Amino acid sequence: MCRGGGGGGGECSGGTLSAAALLARRRSIPTTLLLLCAYVVYLLLGSAAFWAMEGPVERSTALRLLQQKWELLENHTCLDGEALERLAERIVQAYKNGLILKGNASLGRWDFVGSFFFSVSAVTTIGYGNLSPSTVSAQVFCIFFALFGIPLNLVLLNRIGQLMLSGVQQCACHLGNKFNWQKGAAVLTRTCALVAGLLLFLLLPPLLFTAIEGWTYEQGFYYSFITLATIGFGDYVIGMNPDRTYPAWYKNIVSLWILFGMAWLALIINLCISLLENSSDLCQCCKRNSREVEQELIDGNQNTSLGPEDEPSCNVKATKPVGPN
Rank of each mutant, 00 (worst) to 15 (best):
160 I>N: 04
160 I>C: 05
161 G>L: 06
161 G>R: 09
162 Q>V: 01
162 Q>N: 09
163 L>T: 02
163 L>R: 13
163 L>F: 02
164 M>G: 07
164 M>D: 07
165 L>I: 02
166 S>I: 00
166 S>K: 09
166 S>V: 00
167 G>M: 07
167 G>P: 03
168 V>Y: 05
168 V>C: 11
169 Q>W: 00
169 Q>A: 01
169 Q>E: 04
170 Q>I: 02
170 Q>C: 00
171 C>K: 13
171 C>T: 11
171 C>S: 11
171 C>V: 04
172 A>I: 07
173 C>F: 07
174 H>T: 13
174 H>V: 07
174 H>L: 08
174 H>S: 12
175 L>N: 15
175 L>K: 11
177 N>C: 07
177 N>P: 02
177 N>W: 08
178 K>S: 01
178 K>F: 01
179 F>C: 06
180 N>F: 04
180 N>D: 06
180 N>V: 02
181 W>K: 11
181 W>G: 00
182 Q>C: 04
182 Q>I: 03
183 K>S: 03
183 K>F: 01
183 K>Q: 02
184 G>Q: 14
185 A>G: 03
185 A>S: 15
186 A>K: 15
186 A>M: 10
186 A>W: 12
186 A>T: 14
186 A>Y: 13
187 V>L: 14
187 V>T: 11
187 V>F: 11
187 V>R: 15
188 L>N: 10
188 L>Q: 14
188 L>P: 04
188 L>V: 12
188 L>S: 14
189 T>W: 03
189 T>N: 03
189 T>Y: 02
189 T>P: 01
189 T>C: 10
190 R>N: 11
190 R>K: 12
191 T>R: 10
192 C>I: 12
192 C>A: 13
192 C>Y: 06
193 A>G: 06
193 A>F: 06
193 A>E: 03
193 A>Y: 05
193 A>V: 02
194 L>C: 07
194 L>M: 09
194 L>Y: 11
195 V>R: 13
195 V>Q: 10
196 A>H: 08
196 A>F: 08
197 G>S: 03
197 G>I: 00
197 G>K: 04
